[in-house]
Amino acid sequence: MPDTRTLGLTLTSCGLVGVIATAYLGFSWAPLVDPEAWNAPEAYRILFWHVPFAWASFLAFCLLFIGAVSWYRKRTEWGWRLVVTGSELGLLFGLGVVISGPIWGSAEWGVPWDWGDLRLNTYGLLTAVALFLVLSRRTQPDGDDTRDTLAAVGLFGFALVPITALATTWYQNRHPGIVLVESEDTGLDPQIRMVLMLGFVSFLVLFVGLVTLSGTIQALEEELEGRQRMLDEGAIA
């Protein structure tokens, strides 16, 4: 246990350092974009965290999906741990996306939310599902039946992704609004690209660190639960 704890803390710390460095460089070193082409040229700097947040949340939702499928089919313990980790990190990074995206959208295009934008709406939906899972895990007694229901909700969230794709396509057909282009690589200044890459790497390291920490915490919680049950039995006897 000390190994994963130390590893988790180390990776998280390194990740945080990189993340802070990304923000610093984003403001102080990355050049300004063309004020003629952008409505809010300074606001573009949100991109240096917004895009890595989006990728981190994508990874988290992948963990959630894999875990939900694994628990749903075979009730594997590792599957459940992935559900817990995926939902917590999905909530953290998903919230970051749906907070920073509308702020940027509002500043640049005057549109905080576009019901026809597939990615934004998918992230919003999955974040809502992740919030449900995190809150429910805290309020419901742990057990197979609770886990079955929560895994089903997790899968429900993912089944909504293609439904959302259809719905947003149909909606956009009649409301061709602004498409929020968040990660256009072509034509990016090399300095901007470098800061973005630093952001990607830092968030990846941070993500792995947080996954490790989450796994460690879950293992400790299980061990504590086991010890407390033994103490309960001793108290009754």
């Binding site: 809502a128 419901q140 909700v153 429900f156």
Partner: peptide, 23 residues
């Protein structure tokens, strides 16, 4: 779906209802 949870009264079903915005 939410009512399946043992403490269903403590669950926020409204979060899942977000999907109904599109219809």
């Amino acid at each position: 779906l939410v009512a399946d949870l043992r403490r269903a009264s403590a669950a926020t079903a409204s979060l899942l209802l977000v999907a109904l915005v599109w219809p």
